[in-house]
């Protein structure tokens, strides 16, 4: 290769080194806080007070775990179960009914269809925060506070998911398949369940991850609706860590955080390829 074409197609070494250094620094910045957390979760409060920063784990994980036996405000197992129930319920409902609505918007010609789609687009951006007081008072009047269903059922109407599913169906559903199912005598509902849902699998997988994570991480609504200690979700449990009860239990705080964060990191690393490409998919469509 001649030097001229080389200089044209490649950056100088200085630029390359600079770019790599910045990227490595940013990558480290993404992991380092979590590494500090894991390390400090294995150290006693005395060790943390003497040397707040360490990169080498110690062996006092059990001691920190014992703090939660003595002061059982932070209940990770309860939080985990409640969060899992809400997240699974909300994800399943949201995926199924959003797909159904998206199918109605794609496969059928009906009078109000375009206005309905415009309506969904319009309300897509309304955040739940703006409706919270009315939602709370309604739930309160119905004695539905402290009920996990209160946070699961609203997932049936998820405008953003409907929008995504519709975009997906428009590009991947051929009406010929639906027609042939009709000729074979399948009802419309059965066609949807046994033919359309399998077609949507890739979109369902992507959306499932994002709905699950979003529901799992939500703090605002659960904080208002779930007051009983036995109903608290993981983010509310985490918020209890910064109360007075654990004020001097530095090791326990880090351990509590690690308990809530590490499962997410592990699941993320397993699914990361799908997640990162899923983000991009949502944008381009």
């Amino acid at each position: 290769m001649s030097s001229k074409s080389l200089s044209k197609s490649q950056d100088s070494l200085v630029v390359k080194v600079f770019v790599y250094v910045i990227c490595i620094v940013l990558a480290i910045l993404s992991i380092l806080p979590f590494w500090f957390m894991v390390v400090n979760a294995t150290r006693t409060s005395e060790m943390i007070l003497a040397h707040p920063i360490s990169l080498i784990p110690s062996s006092h994980l059990g001691d920190n775990l014992k703090v939660f036996d003595d002061k059982p405000t932070f209940q990770p197992v309860t939080g985990f179960i409640n969060s899992a129930i809400i997240s699974v319920g909300a994800t399943v409902l949201s995926l199924y009914f959003s797909s159904l609505t998206a199918y109605a918007l794609t496969a059928y010609e009906w009078k109000l269809r375009d206005s309905f789609f415009k309506f969904i687009m319009a309300v897509m951006m309304i955040p739940a925060q703006c409706t919270l007081i009315g939602f709370f008072k309604m739930v309160y009047a119905l004695h539905m506070t402290n009920n996990l269903l209160t946070l699961i059922l609203p997932a049936i109407a998820a405008p953003a998911t409907v929008f995504f599913m519709r975009q997906y169906l428009q590009s991947s559903l051929s009406m010929e398949i639906v027609q042939s199912a009709r000729i074979d005598g399948a009802g419309e509902f059965r066609t949807f369940n046994s033919i359309v849902i399998p077609i949507m699998k890739p979109a369902l997988a992507t959306q499932a991850i994002f709905i699950y994570v979003g529901t799992w991480n939500e703090l605002f609504r659960p904080l208002v609706i779930l007051i009983d200690a036995s109903k608290k979700t993981m983010p509310i449990m985490v918020s209890l860590l910064n109360g007075d009860i654990y004020r001097v239990e530095y090791g326990a705080i880090y351990l509590g955080l690690a308990i809530t964060i590490l499962p997410l990191i592990i699941v993320y690393l397993i699914l990361s390829r799908y997640i990162v490409s899923g983000v991009a998919l949502g944008a381009v469509k």
């Binding site: 940013l26 990558a27 993404s30 992991i31 806080p33 979590f34 957390m37 400090n40 994570v213 799992w216 991480n217 703090l219 993981m234 983010p235 509310i236 985490v238 918020s239 860590l241 910064n242 530095y250 705080i253 880090y254 955080l257 809530t260 964060i261 997410l264 990191i265 993320y268 690393l269 990361s272 390829r273 997640i275 990162v276 983000v279």
Partner: peptide, 20 residues
């Protein structure tokens, strides 16, 4: 994958981690 990681973590946990 690495720089997207913080986005997936519970914001509540991240806030308390930084508080610590």
């Amino acid at each position: 994958i690495l720089v997207y990681l913080p986005n997936i973590i519970t914001a509540a946990s991240v806030a308390i981690l930084f508080q610590a």
